[in-house]
């Protein structure tokens, strides 16, 4: 079911066009990635989707009353303690004190906020401050979550935690809109909104456009296991290839499943001879 609908949404400041008219429908339980160069209008679009900025023309329908929004630069009150700040966020987000405390503890643990959540916000490192920003967004269970460059300043080790939080939100039916610069995240996004020259283009099923070819060594004694092993991958197709005396098995998969597939092959004793992205030279 469509949750958010953008109809001919555009934004200009005076004579300067920031975003040209855009139509977009986002379904509940969908994650959409926004990609674009600096100054391309990503943040403006995110602000309009979050409902904190009004389009110059067009309408944004379906914005829930409360939205989890992480701005590009998260600047909370520097003298306030992080836990006190998050408790305020919990109260404003209609959580009762007990639930808020439990969620704060859980999010602090998941995101790895160090040294503790009792520090003043102004004393936290950039990465930990970003984690507080993420905790703020995921503290109440919002139906719409807008993350403007959520990985800025965030250590790589915390990325899986963020991915898990996003995945959990999507699974419970929330819409997650995030802007990303990381090539892997962009290519593995199920739906991509690319902004260039202030014009947004929606690319559906990005993963279908970028498939990965695995060439694995023939393992005749394990050939029977292959179909069973690959059954849990929805995008996989298998073909046998013989060139002269050389025989190989070629597996194609969507890029969203490539890491998991690679791990699965290696863990089961298969040898990957070659790995190639669709469109790459080899």
């Amino acid at each position: 079911m469509t949750l958010i609908t953008l109809h001919q949404v555009s934004k200009r400041y005076g004579d300067r066009i920031v975003l040209r008219p855009l139509d977009l429908a986002i379904r509940g339980g969908e994650s959409i990635v926004v990609q674009g160069a600096n100054g391309s209008g990503k943040s403006t679009l995110m602000r309009m989707i979050a409902g904190v900025s009004r389009p110059t023309s067009g309408t944004v329908d379906g914005i829930p009353e409360r939205v989890g929004y992480l701005p590009e630069r998260f600047r909370p009150p520097s003298l306030m303690r992080a836990d006190v700040y998050l408790r305020h966020v919990g109260r404003i987000g209609n959580l009762n004190a007990t639930t808020a405390r439990q969620r704060i503890d859980s999010l602090s643990h998941i995101l790895g906020i160090r040294p503790s959540v009792n520090e003043r916000l102004g004393r936290l490192s950039k990465g930990n401050l970003q984690k507080i920003g993420l905790a703020q967004v995921f503290l109440p269970e919002h139906r719409l979550i807008v993350l403007d460059e959520p990985r800025t300043g965030l250590e790589r080790a915390a990325w899986p935690a963020l991915d898990e939080l996003i995945s959990n939100a999507v699974q419970r039916g929330a819409v997650v809109v995030s802007s990303e610069h990381d090539a892997h995240l962009i290519e593995s996004a199920p739906r991509l909104l690319r902004i260039a020259a202030n014009e947004a283009t929606v690319i559906e099923q990005v993963t279908a456009l970028r498939r990965v070819e695995f060439v694995v060594l023939p393992a005749s004694e394990k050939a029977g296991e292959l179909d069973r092993m690959l059954a849990r991958f929805s995008s996989v197709t298998v073909e046998s290839r013989t060139a002269g005396r050389d025989h190989s098995v070629v597996i194609w998969a969507d890029s969203s499943e490539k890491d998991a597939l690679l791990l699965c092959l290696l863990a089961n004793g298969w040898t990957v001879n070659r790995l190639r992205m669709d469109g790459d030279r080899g």
Binding site: G51, V52, Y69
Partner: peptide
């Protein structure tokens, strides 16, 4: 005394600007 970004973030949480 509240930055524009922070105000926007809290506004989204509190039910709108």
């Amino acid at each position: 005394s509240e930055s524009e970004q922070q105000s926007a973030s809290m506004a989204a949480l509190a039910g709108g600007v």
